[in-house]
Design a protein around this nucleic acid. Sequence first.
DNA 1: CGATTATTTTAATCCGGATTAAAATTTTTG
DNA 2: CAAAAATTTTAATCCGGATTAAAATAATCG
Lengths: 199, 199
Amino acid sequence: MARTAEESRFSLQKDRMLRAAARCFNQKGFSGTSLKDVAGQLGLTDAALYYYVRNKEELVYLCYLKAAELGRAALETATAEGGTALERIRRYLHLHAEFMLGEPGPVAIMSEIPSLKTEHREEILRLSREHSARFEALLREGIDEGSIAPCDVRMTGNAIMGALNWIPKWHHGDPDVARQVLASFPDILSRGLVPAGSR
Amino acid sequence: MARTAEESRFSLQKDRMLRAAARCFNQKGFSGTSLKDVAGQLGLTDAALYYYVRNKEELVYLCYLKAAELGRAALETATAEGGTALERIRRYLHLHAEFMLGEPGPVAIMSEIPSLKTEHREEILRLSREHSARFEALLREGIDEGSIAPCDVRMTGNAIMGALNWIPKWHHGDPDVARQVLASFPDILSRGLVPAGSR
DNA sequence: CGATTATTTTAATCCGGATTAAAATTTTTG
DNA sequence: CAAAAATTTTAATCCGGATTAAAATAATCG
């Protein structure tokens, strides 16, 4: 039996749905997008969405979950290859910027976290904290090995994350701009980390 | 007649209202806050808000307008005193962070811009662009005078703004953290700007 | 104080979008 | 192909929160 095929048909549609939702939430804001808007992009009726998702809240939640996962994956990929902590961070900056420039990026702003149901909200916040913690650990590692200048890792992490996460606010899909971002952000965000001596 | 007194009574209430609204939008998200929530904080009925504002859209708009104005004022104050461009930028970083840590800051995220009416949306976006432009001009000035290392001013400005504007996302009112931010952000965000020679 | 203006409340209305249930259609499977 | 499962639609319902109008209360002024 085509178990995998069935599975994937459902999952693929669901994924299309999430991407459509992310696009809408970004363009029109959360309160500004109706389920009809999202369904429209898929050539479906609003009611059809309920086959994939319990309600609108779950739709946002899944978008946020996916954004969190993509961020996590970027950090993991960047650190997997080795090199100094500074080098790994620079790879991460590039990967994360890349993801923020893409489709689901905008939803990463996660402005509607407060209106998620408690359980979902806590999960998203937990994932977010875990991500920050991993990044800060990487900074600490760099400081220990000397590839990064001593600093307040918490605050430095927050600053860098902010710069990355803010990208969707001013990037509106122009591929030229996207290229500029990828070319400049790793430098901009890591230059301040380099110890005074090793310039 | 006590024209000024009347004026100020109205304005003061209106200002209280905006602060209450900002607090709500931040804590509960835009779609999550009803006019009743905002009115409740003021000991009023929801209908009373309509004496001060045409509708909910105008309420958000005014919050955004105020946030934009505070940002503008921070930059103006910081640049008024003179010094090298780098020094002025560092003063600005401190002032802007200070404002982001305060009451109306959180609304500065401005996630509901898409659902503003065209006229309001365009005004807010214009103010935002003007602010960026002024900051970039300051960067350019620093590069010319040599207090700042050559860089892509557009991207550098975006990165710094992002780091600042993201503050409300992770700052939740703890005054200790606020102190840490003010102590570290100007350094963190300006260290990367300093030319390699003048460390 | 009486009158006028400012502010707020009460009590409806209104409305769009979320949600649901049942029916119709399409796809899969044996 | 027929039956079963999966997917989507149609057609209501439902509901909370925005908005409004008129009335009530409070403040101010001459």
